[in-house]
Design a protein around this nucleic acid. Structure first.
Length: 392
DNA sequence: CCAGACGTTGTT
DNA sequence: GTCTGG
DNA sequence: CCAGACGTTGTT
DNA sequence: GTCTGG
């Protein structure tokens, strides 16, 4: 599945990432805060078609992740976590999604997403992304919901599918990644047959989708800087020492067949690098000044790629997830503070202060007051097609 | 007819 | 909105 | 998705 | 465990 992502793509690069050569009009771009750790509820750039007939055109519309269906009760707060994913296998038999298939398909682009793999008690997050740093294009559906105040809320959900063979050891679901222009166009334009649908929702198998472990600190949504995607050495039971060496070696082998994806011309400037991001946090415009940066964006961090980043095509998982668990490493790693002893010593001496030390932690942006924008509501003109999705 | 649900994970 | 359950 | 809280009384 | 918040 997909419940967390890095979304730092610039709004003006989203269209290109989806294969549009001309710049796209944008809607509510101001609400989008690029982040290395977006969760449902956040605003993200989405490409959808707006208008009908001759006026029909693709736009980059910043919407909130997590579908709030049109019929949601106005009496309660919108819940962005209930439907942030939609299973592609069942999407046409689910009431909440089926209605969106004809006219409300859209795309969203992220540089990568996170999955947590449980290793015993611990959960280790991994960052999954294209080896060359290009954004991933996800298939998505959007809907609108009118708030009690009369504002129109746009939300979307990301389609998921079973995982590719390669990703199997990590997880069992993954987002529907559209690969290639034909696939993207197919999803966006109004001609979906069952066959096409099936083809589009195949799990992404190519070896240029890679992953590595990242700091567990990114589990906290407020931890949303570039550190989120820094590779760490997994301190995971069963994945240390030998396994790591193996992974490293394998990753190197795999480096030999890196291939380029899509024929588009995506440049460094399309991504927020660390400098841009810091500037952004500081309230500056990413575009102005901010050195020329570039230096160590995607690519330098890619050089540090190692550890079982890329399991082989059909090779079984390097590390058998179930096989280990309690296996002590051959060589005792240096003192791990986190290591739970077999028997819990009661040394746990956390004296609760009478008064909670104030958790200075968040500077979380303000609440979004979905104000009435000049945006016209979508004129949904029902039209032809789609007798298809009435199967069971 | 009206009322109520409408979704995804992951877990042992 | 649209489907299921009573 | 993960993180963090999870309660009452009565008070200035 | 279960709910809320981001």
């Amino acid at each position: 599945m997909c419940g967390r992502a890095r979304c730092t793509v610039r709004v003006d690069a989203v269209g290109r990432a989806c294969g549009f050569s001309a710049p796209l009009r944008s809607v509510n771009a101001d609400r989008y805060q690029p982040s290395y750790n977006v969760a449902p509820g956040a605003h993200m750039p989405v490409v959808r078609h707006d208008g009908a007939g001759d006026a029909r055109e693709p736009v980059v519309h910043c919407m909130r992740w997590g579908l709030v269906p049109n019929f949601a009760k106005k009496s309660e707060k919108p819940d962005f976590y209930r439907m942030f994913n939609a299973r592609s296998e069942s999407v046409h038999q689910k009431i909440s999604f089926r209605r969106l298939l004809a006219k409300n398909r859209c795309l969203t682009t992220v540089e990568g997403f996170y999955e947590w793999k449980k290793d015993g008690q611990k959960k280790q997050p991994y960052y999954i992304h294209m080896q060359d740093g290009h954004p991933l294009v996800f298939a998505a559906l959007y809907d609108t919901w009118e708030s009690p105040e009369g504002d129109m809320l746009y939300t979307f959900t990301i389609l998921t599918t079973r995982v590719s063979k390669r990703l199997e050891w990590l997880h069992d679901r993954m987002p529907v990644i559209l690969k290639g222009q034909d696939t993207i166009d197919s999803w966006l334009n109004d001609n979906l047959s069952e066959d096409v649908m099936k083809k589009l929702t195949q799990p992404y198998e190519a070896p240029d989708l890679i992953w590595y472990p990242v700091t567990p600190a990114m589990g906290k949504p407020a931890f949303n800087g570039p550190e989120c995607i820094e590779e760490i050495k997994p301190k995971v039971a069963g994945e240390s020492n030998i396994a790591q060496m193996f992974g490293k070696q394998l990753a190197q082998e795999n480096k030999s067949h890196v291939n380029k994806v899509m024929s588009q011309d995506i440049k460094d400037e399309d991504f927020l690098n660390d400098e841009d991001f810091k500037a952004l946090l500081a309230g500056m415009q990413p575009d102005q000044d901010v050195s020329e940066a570039v230096s160590h964006s995607e690519y330098s961090s890619l050089d540090r790629l190692n550890t079982q980043a890329t399991p082989k095509e059909e090779a079984p998982p390097l590390i058998k997830p179930e096989t280990k668990e309690e296996d002590p490493p051959l060589i005792k790693p240096e003192t791990k503070e986190e290591d739970p002893p077999l028997i819990k010593p009661e040394t746990k001496e956390e004296d609760p202060p009478l008064i909670k030390p104030e958790t200075k932690e968040d500077h979380v942006p303000q609440t979004n007051k979905e104000e009435d924008s000049a945006t016209a509501g979508v004129k949904q003109k029902q039209s032809n097609l789609l007798g298809f999705f009435s199967k069971e």
